[in-house]
Design a protein around this nucleic acid. Structure first.
Lengths: 212, 212
DNA sequence: ACCTGAACACCGTTCAAGT
DNA sequence: ACCTGAACACCGTTCAAGT
């Protein structure tokens, strides 16, 4: 027995992190395992399934308990606070590997409603709230990662590529778009959570609008 | 003069709509124009720029005035209502062409803050609100389109693929995931708009938290 | 069960050369 | 300005055959 499925998946994640999604070809994953490309098809039916397995590993454990984000106050967590932490953990997990957000978002779209994170979120903020939070988190992470990539390319050309006045400090907004994206994530999250809170208050019922 | 840039872009959009993003190769676009693949590189530096131009055409006009969504009441529109309409129009525009959401979302990530729709949205609901709405709209549309694609594949296998009890009607939720996705979009939108409204009320200032 | 070797039908992009 | 022809360095996937 030369390689197991887990070997293939972790090799693929290594290739992804080093070469990005575009450079993550079946042929390169095979090379990482010192194996012919066709050997991969013994473990996996096609590239898409491999990407789905990779997505599972990337978000593994997020939302199980509030992983990755420590308690801020010792008290009991409200559903909102739990959901907030889960989204922060989710974003961190996706950003931890190159193009992780793309991989996870694409895979998540396929089994909408069936993912572990979404179901946990739904318990806390209802089905609509869970989806809204997830879509926002995916989109924000994808955008952050796109800009990181662009920034790393720009760094090769030159640190200051022609932008006339580098405004910062006076208006309080960071000029670097990726820092701005990091900072704005929580603000957007809070907008959604605020909306869920007043919806909750208005109905008097749990945050799920359909069943009681 | 055989072909103009506009010819190339609209040929590419035709190929996209018929073959999807994966089937939208430079070689197929060239074939659509009865031209060699290399001829495209006279009009466009690479495939990515072509996709960006396609994205511009797909969302063209959205947010300029509240295009695509009619007035519901004759009265003046609040910023919230304008933003709501812009998001609905945006989603419709993306869903109108196969894999349109993917194409637009990827292109939009590159020039975050610079797109016409985002700037109009920012006037109405502030910079953070605009981003939150856009990320949600992109993610929701991508997911909808993924499920439509999956459904069209499933339809080839069989209309009723093994799900035991087709629950619907009693609990009010459609069992078809793509219908559910269509219906839930506005609910998520309203969650975000509600959050923006109470943020607005709380600060007393316009919805942009940074500059008044 | 796990892998090789060879093939098939594709890709994006470059570049000299034509008109 | 717009295009051809040919090439380069790749893809994902299949399949008979080996051990």
């Amino acid at each position: 027995m030369r390689n197991t499925l887990a070997d293939v998946v972790s090799a693929a994640l290594r290739v992804l992190d080093e070469n990005g999604l575009e450079g993550c070809s079946m042929r390169r994953v095979a090379a990482e395992l010192d194996v012919q490309p066709s050997a991969l098809y013994h473990h996996v039916p096609n590239k898409q399934s491999l990407l789905a397995l990779m997505a599972d590993v990337i978000v593994d454990g997020v939302g199980e308990r509030d992983a990755g984000v420590p308690d801020e106050d010792g008290g009991g967590h409200s559903g909102m606070a739990l959901a907030r932490n889960a989204c922060l953990a989710m974003r961190s997990a996706m950003l931890a590997v190159r193009d992780g957000a793309d991989v996870v978002a694409t895979a998540a779209a396929f089994r909408l409603g069936a993912s572990a994170v979404e179901q946990r979120l739904a318990e806390w903020v209802g089905a609509d709230g869970a989806r809204t939070l997830l879509f926002y988190t995916f989109g924000q992470a994808q955008s952050t990662q796109t800009h990181r990539h662009a920034a790393s390319l720009g760094a090769l050309i030159g640190p200051e590529s022609g932008r006339a006045g580098q405004r910062s400090g006076t208006n309080g907004a960071p000029s670097d778009p990726v820092l701005e994206l990091d900072a704005s994530f929580e603000r957007g999250l809070d907008i959604i959570l605020t909306g869920l809170e007043s919806e909750h208050r208005a109905t008097g019922a749990p945050t799920n609008g359909i069943l009681h």
